[in-house]
Design a protein around this nucleic acid. Structure first.
Length: 683
RNA sequence: GCCGAUGUAGCUCAGCUGGUAGAGCAACUGAUUCGUAAUCAGUAGGUCAGCGGUUCAAAUCCGCUCAUCGGCUCCA
């Protein structure tokens, strides 16, 4: 047996023949000891497909929970996976040694950091029971159960203890043992969560894998870094509640968050980035730039738009209305409260009431605040008989809706209780449906581009056939609807991800998530198919054949919620809005009081061109005025003194660029007006 | 809704183990009249989130409520 060899193919294409059982570490060492010291983990891909199948099948789970539990695993169709450096190689493989610069391997470091943290927690608080501790995009966490919650001081103590565990440089050793032994041992220790995971992710007769470092052992699929000393930069960041198995009916665990990096410098950069994100937080900027507020006396999740925010909103809404009209929509308005009877007919009473405010008694009946605009639009459609010649009917409304959100869920403008949907409902014949949906998707694309977003991701949400009671309509309806949505996306060549169980109760939908400058994803636009409401309201049109037919209906919102879109916009631009959206486009700074008169004349001229101008008439030094306009992120600041007054000129200071010197008024006006009209992002 | 933290002047924050509030900026008044990110001086401004309790005495300790923040869950 010891004669037996295997082939190892390295990334440069070279192939080495080594003894069976050679480890990636051995190979790294044979290349160079320095490489061996820098390598974190190995990526292997079996060279023969047969072997690949065998390797991947081992312990490979497809559920996301399993993936999360088991930690980082690059499971791909090619059978690629990450293994410990100490893992004996048993077949012909392509081997890649991942060094401390590799992004994928960072997850391994973080997963190992989670083990280090668990080690520290158990040493300090032995009564703690362990859940799971995966790596995340930002770092890692470990879910644990303990009667008393961890305090700030506890977190600091945990971090300190982790430093000790790292200093001990304990080897991560993979061990395997019979599943039954694992179950018995963990049961004896009262580790109910570990018992659950073993039962869920392994089958009777399986060997389970454990990772040991020093006195700490954890059921885990791995892989890990060679030793705890390889977790070089880490921090325990916070603790929060998390439900066991994500179900709020279960007990609450403590999720201890941390992060880890290859080195202190990377970690510093990470926290610096977090600070930058915080600096562009729409809640912070909303206050700084005086855009909006949320008032405790008025209630949570309710937005007050201040004049400057209001102006941006007006600009957004005007643009949207004009675009709708240009595309054959008609603007309508519907009431905010409507009789309960209507919500019974629409099905909201049954399927949506947990999100609706309770009914209010009026003299004649009970009324409810609207959570959606659709029933109102339907009543308009239904108000007069329709012929196929009238279709499609496209009703659009910037409709204020109110939805009950649980108290802990609100978040600035992004999650509120009262918001405005740029909502539209399209009533059309079955033949028209695909064209209408395609037009909606195109429109959505245009909206995102107009506001400066270049990238987006598409999701197709369908129903969960195993949970039919959460949806209306029969199987046949759902299938046709889903297939027509798919057809549109495929025809446009738009890549999408299908998510079963995410549909609205009345039909499947296409959700468009935009990607902002920081690469974050935001759910905004949605195009939804509805075959429920036309039926419930018995909508009809007269066909070419003189018979009555049922129209189909499309719901669509492109901003989604004006509030949320605005919030995302603030963060996207970090408050530095492009010219066409900026609430104040030009700030005027007279150098001294004697230039006030000229400044006023400049203001009048600019305003005559439709520009939004603010003149600082205070008795302040010009530097102070410039500073304030700069902090308010005003695109242009015009400074004027004797020189400018004498020549009908202005000295231009551009946001992000600085002093650009004097130009003639006419020249500046052309530039400013041009920028507004082109809706350019750059100044 | 759940777990944890927080709530002091318009804003950002200080106020140790209980002895009845303080700074900077902003505002207002006055002086200054200035060439590209903060001129100087003075004045005014606070139910210490709200309600209740302990105490001779509460911003400070306790309870409840509201709101905010970080998560969980849920969602546009």
């Amino acid at each position: 047996m010891s004669e037996k060899t295997i082939k190892i193919q390295l990334p440069d294409g070279s192939v080495r023949e080594v003894a069976l059982g050679t480890t990636p570490y051995d190979i790294a060492m044979s290349i160079s000891p320095r490489l061996a010291a820098a390598v974190v983990v190995a990526r292997v891909r079996p060279l023969t497909p047969m072997a690949a199948a065998g390797t991947v099948a081992e312990g490979e789970e497809e559920t996301s929970e399993a993936a999360m539990y088991a930690g980082p695993q690059a499971g791909s169709a090619a059978g690629e996976r990450l293994v410990d450096l100490a893992a004996p190689l048993t077949e012909d493989i392509a081997l890649e040694l991942l060094k401390e610069t590799d992004e994928a391997a960072l997850k391994v470091v973080r997963h190992s950091a989670a083990h280090v943290m668990a080690t520290a927690i158990l040493e300090l608080f032995p009564e703690t029971k362990l859940g799971h501790g995966p790596a995340t995009d930002q770092g890692f966490f470990y879910d644990v159960y303990r009667e008393t919650p961890f305090s700030e001081a506890d977190l600091a103590a945990i971090e300190q203890k982790m430093a000790e565990v790292v200093a001990r440089d304990e080897k991560f050793v993979r061990e395997e043992e019979p599943r039954e032994k694992g179950l018995t041992d963990y049961s004896a220790q009262g580790e109910f969560m570990k018992v659950h995971f073993i039962e869920k992710f392994t089958k009777p007769g399986d060997e389970i894998s454990l990772y040991r470092n020093g006195g700490f052992v954890d059921f885990c699929r791995g892989p890990h870094v060679p030793s705890t000393g390889r977790v070089k930069a880490f921090k325990v960041t916070s603790v929060a509640g998390a439900y066991w198995l994500g179900d709020e009916k279960n007990q609450q665990l403590q999720r201890v968050y941390g992060t880890a990096f290859y080195n202190a410098k990377d970690m510093e950069a990470h926290f610096k980035r977090l600070e930058e994100i915080k600096a562009r937080d729409h809640r912070v900027l909303g206050k700084q730039l005086d855009l909006f507020s949320i008032q405790e006396v008025a209630g949570a999740g309710l937005i007050f738009w201040h004049p400057k925010g209001g102006l941006i909103r007006k600009t957004m809404e005007d643009w949207m209305r004009d675009e709708c009209i240009r595309r054959g929509y008609e603007m309508v308005f519907t009431p905010h409260i409507m009789r309960r009877e209507l919500w019974k007919i629409s099905g909201h009473e049954g399927f949506y009431s947990q999100n609706m405010y309770p009914p209010m008694e009026l003299d004649d009946a009970e009324y409810r605040l609207k959570p959606m605009n659709c029933p109102g639009h339907i009543l308009i459609y239904k108000n007069s008989p329709k012929s196929y010649r009238d279709l499609p009917q496209r009703y659009a409304e910037l409709g204020n809706v109110y939805r009950y959100e649980r108290s802990g869920t609100m978040h600035g403008l992004l999650r509120v209780r009262g918001f405005t949907q740029d909502d539209a409902h399209i009533f059309c014949t079955p033949e028209q449906i695909e064209g209408e949906i395609a037009a909606c998707v195109e429109f959505a694309d245009e909206v995102l581009k107009a506001f400066g977003f270049a990238e987006f991701k598409v999701e197709l949400s369908t129903w969960d056939p195993n949970d039919k009671k959460s949806y209306v309509g029969d199987e046949r309806h759902w299938e046709t609807a889903v297939s027509s949505l798919k057809k549109v996306l495929d025809a446009k060549g738009i890549p999408y991800r299908e998510i079963p169980g995410e549909a609205a109760f009345y039909g499947p939908k296409i959700d468009i998530k935009l990607v902002d400058v920081l690469g974050r994803l935001w759910q905004l636009s949605t195009v939804q198919f509805d075959f429920n409401l036309p039926q419930r309201f018995e909508l009809e049109y007269t066909g070419e054949d003189g018979e009555k037919h049922r129209p189909v209906m499309v719901h669509r919102a492109l901003f989604g919620s004006v509030e949320r879109f605005f919030g995302v916009l603030i963060e996207h631009y970090a408050g530095a809005f492009p010219m066409w959206l900026a609430p104040v486009q030009v700030g005027l700074v007279p150098i001294s009081e004697k230039h006030l008169e000229y400044a006023r004349s400049v203001k009048a001229k600019l305003e005559a061109q439709g520009l939004r101008v603010e003149l600082d008439e205070r008795n302040e030094k010009m530097n102070a005025k410039i500073r304030e306009f700069t902090l308010k992120k005003v695109p242009f600041v015009l400074v004027m003194g004797d020189k400018e007054a004498a020549t009908e000129a202005v000295s231009v200071r551009t946001r992000g660029k600085g002093d650009e010197g004097s130009v003639a008024m006419t020249e500046f006006i052309a530039r400013a007006v041009g920028l507004v009209e082109s809706r350019g992002v750059l100044l």
